[in-house]
């Protein structure tokens, strides 16, 4: 038994503080969603139910273009970073690659703005035009910082005896990689891809520095819209993104991957 003096703390204060944190995290989001269905230009007072902001969302070529751009960039950086991560795992069957894995940790902990300005200054020094290319380069870089640690974390958990047995029994390293490693790592690869997709899709800083004004992503669009003030179309857009993200997290939780990086 915990003594009496803490009874109040345990019984009232702890649940109360937990409730406060959940309210703090979710009340703004709930209000954001509610007002996306509100029939008023300024989402301040409740008027009446409407779906017109969602219709407007579908009819805005700017927003649709931003979605497409974000999708292209996210899909490219996911495939590039996953392929490079798997290539590195294959290489680790031949030579130790711990140094390269260590390198990726610094990407993970360095402030993103340092990554962004570094990349920007090198690209502008070499007069490389900014656009899709530079965005994909930057997004793939942050993705690598997550993909490599996650993949190698799982790789180190695999039973080394099975890999050795496979090699002993005459399988080539490539066969071992294809038939033994890949099947065991599929859930982790899937989870890492999902995480990196979200990261790229939601990324703002790298995009802000490396777009050069030519390519609009969804995050850049939202940033510009917030700057110009409150608008119900933005509420509708936010609601769509929140729903899509919840589905992704749900998928992630179903895969249930234990990894050190979230």
């Amino acid at each position: 038994m915990i003594t009496d003096s803490s009874g109040g703390l345990r019984r009232f204060l702890l649940p109360l503080m937990t409730l406060f944190v959940y309210a703090f995290l979710y009340i703004p989001i709930a209000i954001l969603i509610v007002f996306s269905f509100n029939d008023a230009v300024f989402p301040v007072h409740w008027n009446s139910f409407t779906l017109k902001w969602y219709k407007q969302l579908l009819h805005s070529p700017e927003i649709i273009q931003a979605w497409i751009n974000s999708l292209i960039i996210a899909a490219s950086s996911v495939s590039l970073s996953i392929l490079m991560g798997l290539g590195l795992i294959y290489m680790s069957l031949f030579v130790p690659v711990r140094a390269v894995v260590r390198m990726s940790y610094l990407i993970l902990v360095a402030p993103e703005i340092v990554l962004a300005v570094g990349l920007l200054s090198v690209l502008s020094y070499l007069s490389v035009p900014l656009g899709f290319g530079s965005l994909i380069v930057g997004h793939t870089l942050i993705s690598l910082g997550f993909v490599i640690p996650i993949l190698f974390d799982r790789f180190s958990e695999l039973n080394p005896n099975i890999i050795e047995a496979s090699l002993d029994l005459g399988a080539t390293r490539w066969q071992t990689f294809r038939r033994i490693l890949l099947p065991q790592m599929t859930p982790t690869i899937f989870a890492a891809a999902l995480l990196v997709f979200t990261l790229s899709f939601d990324d703002f800083l790298i995009s802000f520095f490396c777009t050069g004004g030519s390519v609009q992503t969804i995050s850049l669009y939202i940033f510009a819209m917030i700057r110009s003030g409150v608008s119900p179309v933005l509420n509708a857009l936010s609601t769509v993104i929140i729903v899509a993200s919840s589905l992704l997290v749900f998928a992630f939780c179903l895969v249930r991957v234990k990894s050190r990086v979230f």
Partner: peptide, 10 residues
């Protein structure tokens, strides 16, 4: 997992 700009906007 949700775009953090949305939290800022909220």
């Amino acid at each position: 997992w949700t775009n953090f700009l949305l939290h800022v906007y909220a």
